[in-house]
Design a protein around this nucleic acid. Structure first.
Length: 567
RNA sequence: UGGGGCGUGGCCAAGUGGUAAGGCACAGGUCUUUGGAUCCUGCAUUCGAAGGUUCGAAUCCUUCCGCCCCAGCCA
């Protein structure tokens, strides 16, 4: 845990700098109290992780607290399923709200009373214009609005109507409670914003107890005040709501004054994160669900094999600022690789098998060879890998007519099978279509373990798996969900046109080293030379399924695609 | 044509009057039983543009240009 030097604020982002200054000045009694306030109407995604890391991270760094508060003020959109997924994801990310789990709906009674106070001080009124009329009266971006004819109702009249709104005397839309601020304000949020509306939808927590629900601006500012929040961090689009946030706190003369500070969201290239778009992908079955490993949701990333540490490190490397940004996915990928390189045990898995018969290797012999579990971490130990006369290698590791820069196996060439022997390809077996179906090779018994007594060293070292010992498994290869760096919408508002049709490739018959047979869902490995993989939720003993989290950096692939010039 | 923000290398991002941190990406090299990892080196004479102030400006002033957000009884 970092503990920012409260004297020197240089190097801190602008929010931490301000908080450090507040602490130093003794504001809020030196307390730091933040909150993460999701609406339970969808799954958390990588962008939410930024806010979670910020809010919980700051609390931790400053010795403060961070609440988890559900902003459940719109019963028609919210569900328990979402609440549960959100709690699961926040915990998985590594944060804890202890006993500070709150709901805006817990405050409905208080919020109602605060609204009554506003009416009593003549700062709010019941409007009986229709929604359409209210929109007309609001004016436009460049033209001021005009006062509603109901704006001058008496306090007594407003009090009575508001009470009846709560009692269920009116249908939805008949009346709405509005703050009396300024219909001519340049800031549209200040043109008498609605603060309570009638809704007969059943709320997932309060049921039919209420038919009156507070609007976000009112509920949020007051919830912050009620909970003693000191710094209310939110994204840039709420910047011009801040005067309203402050207005509510000012008018109600609350003893505690939280301050709202805004920061920029962080978008990731080649994906979408807008709630509406994520819902479309799920409900239109463009993906298998909220936790489809291609989704940028935290549950998707988790299933894909990302670690919470990697996600936290990612956001930490990005920082906090007020500039709109689209971060290159490669930076997210770099963060997982960096974390998994240190943690993931290595294993050998042949994704696209090509049979190799080692002709001079004794027919019935099996050797148990030593393999290192993680060259980055000797404490992870070693394991035995069986070797025999027939092995499988990766199809891509053989070329009958190798291009100049290809230095893997080809006719007449010697390569090293990792931890095993040097083999040389002596002939190629093809089927009637001329396709290579098998390689015949010879091996050098003196190279057992992978070292030659004469010191020679092949240019390529390849992974392999013994045919007789291999376990079969399904491997799911994922690629970016969209082909566009910033998936855009066409005229019809359809953002799915740039969906990558090849974002999922299933390899049904991968051959895995036997130690993998005990893999449990969630276990992560590096399949040597292929990437990082994670046993899927669907994986079972005897029916293994692995998701590719991310490939390894692959210089050869880049040369082959012409992205990099060969050395 | 209203209000609120933002413009520093391909992508992020420090810097807030003293002569452009860092990460990702990229390039080259080292090392290597993963074409992985590691390690080293390189990568903005310039900070949206133009003027101005100053011994000195990314930082101060002026004007201009560009991008984002706001007209839910959504959050």
């Amino acid at each position: 845990m970092k503990s920012p030097d409260l004297e020197a604020t240089s190097g801190l982002d602008f929010i931490r700098t301000r908080i450090a200054e507040d602490v130093k000045a003794g504001r809020n009694g030196g307390r730091v109290h933040t909150r993460f306030p999701p609406e339970p109407n969808g799954y958390l995604h990588i962008g939410h992780a930024k806010s979670i890391c910020l809010n919980f991270g700051i609390a931790k760094e400053f010795g403060g607290l961070c609440n988890l508060r559900f902003d459940d003020t719109n019963p028609s959109k919210e569900e328990v399923e979402y609440e549960e997924s959100i709690k699961r994801d926040v915990k998985w990310l590594g944060f804890d709200w202890d006993d500070r789990l709150f709901y805006a709906s817990d405050y409905f009674g208080q919020l109602y009373q605060y609204a009554v106070q506003l009416i009593q001080s003549d700062k709010a009124y019941v409007d009986s214009l229709t929604a359409d009329q209210i929109r007309e009266y609001r004016g436009t971006l460049t033209e001021p609005g005009k006062d509603s004819p109901y704006r001058t109702r008496t306090i007594a009249e407003n009090l009575e109507l508001f009470e009846r709104m709560r009692a269920g005397d009116f249908p939805e839309g008949a009346h709405v409670l509005r703050a009396r601020i300024d219909m001519r304000s340049g800031n549209i949020n200040l043109r008498d914003p609605a603060i309570f509306r009638v809704k007969y939808a059943s709320h997932y927590r309060t049921g039919s107890q209420w038919c009156l629900y507070p609007m976000y601006d009112f509920a949020h500012a007051l919830s912050d005040a009620i909970e003693g929040i000191t710094h209310s961090l939110c994204t840039l689009e709420f910047e011009d709501h801040r005067p309203l946030y402050d207005w509510f706190l000012e008018q109600l003369q609350l003893p505690h004054r939280p301050q709202q500070i805004e920061f920029a969201k962080g978008f990731i290239s080649y994906t979408v994160v807008a709630k509406r778009k994520l819902r479309t992908l799920v409900f239109d079955k463009r993906v298998s669900g909220w936790d489809d490993p291609r989704m940028p949701t935290l549950s998707g990333l988790r299933r894909r094999g990302f670690t919470p540490e990697a996600i936290r490190a990612f956001w930490e490397s990005i920082g906090i600022a007020k500039r709109d940004s689209t971060i290159d996915v490669s930076q997210l990928e770099a963060a997982v690789r960096d974390d998994l390189n240190k943690k993931a045990p290595r294993a050998m898995a042949v994704l696209r098998p090509l049979r190799v018969v080692i002709e001079n290797y004794p027919e019935d012999q099996v050797e148990e060879l030593d393999a290192v579990n993680n060259p980055e971490d000797a404490s992870m130990g070693k394991r035995k890998v069986p070797f025999s006369r027939i092995v499988y290698i990766e199809r891509d590791d053989f070329r009958e007519n190798p291009p100049k820069q290809f230095f893997r196996l080809s006719p007449g060439r010697e390569v090293r099978l990792r931890y095993a022997y040097f083999i040389t390809c002596t002939s190629v077996v093809k089927d009637e279509n001329g396709e290579v179906v098998e390689l015949r090779c010879s091996y050098d018994p003196a190279t057992r373990g992978g070292d030659a007594p004469d010191g020679r060293s092949p240019k390529a070292t390849m992974h392999w798996v013994s045919a007789a010992h291999a376990v079969r498994g399904e491997i799911r290869l994922y690629d970016r969900l969209f082909n566009d760096e910033r998936p855009s919408e066409d005229e019809e508002g359809d953002f799915t046109s740039s969906l990558n049709p090849n974002s999922l490739e299933v390899l049904a018959d991968a051959h895995l080293e036997p130690s993998l047979s005990s893999a449990q869902p969630g276990d992560r490995y590096q399949f040597e030379r292929m990437g990082y993989f994670c046993a899927d939720l669907d994986s079972k003993p005897g029916a293994l399924v692995f998701n590719r989290t991310v490939t390894l950096r692959d210089t050869w692939a880049r040369i082959e695609k012409g992205l990099k010039k060969p050395r």
